[in-house]
């Protein structure tokens, strides 16, 4: 179905839709939006692998699929390994993988499936140098199983297994820096992205296609259900995550760091602005917020230094 050319030109994203409505994501789901963007970026010529996660359900129950692209469902911890196998098979059969007209082999996994149970297979995929793209959509907990904490859950968050009570605090550990673990593999391309900045995400997806070898993108994807946030605030929250430097946007390309913040010059907004829209943070005390704020700014300074020294 076509729309006027002059309208098409004004769109900041490709017009083509390869993500079908009728999918079963919750209202305001960041992961669903992320999938829509990835499917826009590569058209149909991408093979997806999805482990156990919300997207297993989002993609539709048998006999339906929300993807206008091939999709292989796999076990929780295997994304890195399965995409390695798919890439190997395509190469053995003489297909072009990655590059302008090559097939994109994509792993799409949640934070639990990446930072926790799938970390080993991810490391193997990165270390062996396969031509593929691993996207970790980060909604900061095991949402599909009912909001349990993962190693990507931030300090102070309520989850169903960090419920908070008289004796036990909320989540006590800071968010695991999966992207740093990925970069330690010295892969050619790694980046963070956010569903609130789809044009930036799209650019990164295109880069991941162009640059040979393994690529990794950590995509910030709000979850209204698990974050106890209003469904209409998903983009606003994701935007604030960037503006508070809680989830800074940056790229690591061939050994060089580059921050892609819309506002690198400005001071980050106070973390409260990000926290206050989400019910999961409502039990935090002033001291707790202070702890998180300090951590955010420390990490932000560290990233800025890296960009300065290795920019």
């Amino acid at each position: 179905m076509e729309i006027p050319e002059n309208v098409k030109k004004r769109l900041s994203l490709p017009f083509e839709e390869n993500f079908y409505a009728g999918h079963t994501a919750c209202q305001g789901c960041g992961a669903a939006l992320g999938l829509r963007y990835v499917l826009k970026a590569y058209g149909k010529k991408a093979i997806f692998t999805i482990p156990a996660c919300c997207s297993t359900i989002i993609a539709g129950p048998w006999p339906y699929s929300a993807f206008n692209a091939p999709l292989f469902h796999t076990a929780f911890e295997t994304t890195g390994a399965v995409i390695s196998g798919i890439e190997a098979a395509l190469k053995a059969k003489g297909y072009k993988v990655k590059g302008e007209d090559g097939i994109m082999v994509i792993g799409w996994a949640g934070d639990g499936g990446t930072a926790d149970i799938g970390l080993q297979a991810l490391s193997g995929f990165l270390e062996r140098g396969h031509d593929g793209l691993y996207i970790m959509y980060d909604n900061e907990a095991y949402m599909n199983t009912g909001i349990q904490r993962s190693s990507s859950t931030p300090y102070g968050a309520w989850t169903t297994n960090t419920p908070g009570g008289k004796k036990h605090f909320l989540e006590r550990r800071h968010k695991k820096k999966v992207i740093d673990i990925v970069i330690a593999h010295k892969i050619p391309y790694a980046a963070t992205a956010s569903v609130a900045f789809p044009e930036d995400f799209m650019k990164k997806l295109k880069k991941a296609q162009k640059i040979p070898g393994p690529s990794f993108i950590q995509l910030f994807a709000p979850c209204p259900t698990g974050w106890r946030s209003p469904t209409d605030k998903s983009i606003e929250i994701a935007r604030l995550a960037v503006q508070t430097a809680y989830f800074p946007l940056f790229e690591y390309e061939n050994g060089k760091y580059k921050i892609n913040m819309p506002s690198t010059k400005k001071e980050p907004k106070p973390i409260e602005e990000f926290l206050k829209l989400q019910g999961r943070f409502k039990y935090m005390s002033k001291d707790d917020i202070e702890v998180l704020q300090k951590w955010v700014l420390h990490e932000w300074e560290e990233l800025k230094k890296k960009a300065e020294v290795f920019g």
């Binding site: 729309i3 006027p4 002059n6 309208v7 839709e17 993500f19 409505a21 009728g22 999918h23 994501a25 209202q27 305001g28 789901c29 960041g30 669903a32 939006l33 829509r36 209204p224 209003p230 469904t231 209409d232 998903s234 983009i235």
Partner: peptide, 25 residues
């Protein structure tokens, strides 16, 4: 996120209420 918002021939947007879940984004 569905997507349920389409672009009409006149360039304005329309909403496909068959799919819109009403998230309000």
């Amino acid at each position: 996120p569905e997507p349920a918002i389409f672009i009409r021939e006149d360039g304005y947007v329309g909403i496909d209420y068959d799919y819109c879940k009403g998230c309000g984004i």
